[in-house]
Amino acid sequence: MRFRRKNRSPAVLSHEFIIQNHADAASFLVMVFLLGLIAEAPAKSTIIFIAVQYNVTYTIDDNSEQFHFYDYGPKDFATIFFYMLVAIYLHAVIQEYILDKINRRLHLSKTKHSKFNESGQLAFFYLFSFIWGASILNAEEFMMNPTSLWKDYPHSRMLFQVKFFYICQIAYWLHALLELYFQRIQKEDIPRQLCYICLYIAHISGAYILNLQRLGLILMVPHYLVELIFHASRLFYFSDENKQKGFTIWALLFVMVRLLTLTLSVLTFGFGLARAEDPGFSIADGNFNVLPVRIGCLGAVCLTQAWMMWKFINFQLKKWREHVNNQIPKKKITNTKNKRTKKEPNRATFVNGAAKSECGASPRIRKSKPV
């Protein structure tokens, strides 16, 4: 009698082992850092990973009120690493307890399954980031005063919410790079996802390092809203292909946000910072308001927006062609049906006439000639 072989667990530290247990490893490291705060000796080193660093406190002579601001530095890499682990763990939780359960009910194909998971993860992130970023803009009133984007530059001192927002943004997009390996993304989708992930990392990190946090925050919030509408519409489309109204709203807002981004970027780099230019380029003071940096930033924003519009136009043309190709066979079917309906009455009259000739008057009998 033969015994059934049990499924062998993958070898430790192999590719399969890392992919299967990456969420558990991330949660374990997070718990190690949190437990390090209990004892006094390791708390001095573990606090760098958890708390936001480079606190700067200002006091006014007239009042004893203190104002807390934050700068950036090399210790931010440790904080970004910790919250990247948190993002990996949350990614696994959303995937296992929400998206996988919905996928089992929908019974999607492999391609739609991967796109559904991608849109589900991004929809949660965009929703959270949009609400958080909008609350910061509402509290600081950056939208009500556009001159604050370049007034009193460099903005080397950040509030806690602004710095923590940027750290979480960078940590999430760095975690998205690792998820390309952990989620076994198909080779066809890797270049596309790798492209937009790298663009997010470059633009958000550039705004953070160059002390353009206000401009980056104002540009990110409406962009995240548009992306949220797109991925939410994509999720509804996978559940029911007739639900496509969200894509029309996304298309309108997409063009409007691209114009808003270009307008604010030209105003900030071309007019605002150019008039308030400080010739003293200083990395220590965080002053990067010089002509080459402004041209580089404006060029990066314009090229990115042009590339996004080009992809958007190609996407819309592709959908339009598919719609036209689907309408052609429908027209042929309707034309053939109309032709058949026109011919059917003639056949009916012919049949009715034949029936009358059989049942009605006797047909004429030809007389044969005598031979």
Rank of each mutant, 00 (worst) to 15 (best):
L90H: 10
H113A: 07
L137C: 13
I98R: 03
I136R: 06
K110W: 08
H91T: 14
L90K: 10
H113G: 04
F128E: 12
H91G: 13
Q95H: 01
K101Q: 06
L122Y: 04
S135M: 08
H113P: 03
I94W: 03
N117H: 07
Y126H: 09
A92D: 10
T111R: 15
N103F: 04
Y97L: 07
F116P: 02
E96Q: 11
R104P: 01
A134F: 10
G133S: 12
A139E: 15
A139Q: 13
N103H: 07
R105A: 13
V93F: 00
F116Y: 10
L122G: 05
K101Y: 06
W132G: 02
F116V: 05
L127Y: 06
L99E: 05
G133V: 05
G133N: 05
I131Y: 06
G133C: 07
S135R: 12
K112N: 11
K110H: 11
K101E: 01
L137W: 03
Y89Q: 14
L122R: 14
F125R: 13
G133E: 05
L137S: 08
D100S: 12
I98D: 06
E140K: 12
F128P: 01
S119R: 08
Y97E: 08
G120L: 06
A134Y: 11
V93L: 14
G133K: 00
Y89F: 15
G133D: 09
F124M: 12
R105E: 14
A139G: 11
F130G: 06
K115F: 15
I102Q: 12
L99N: 02
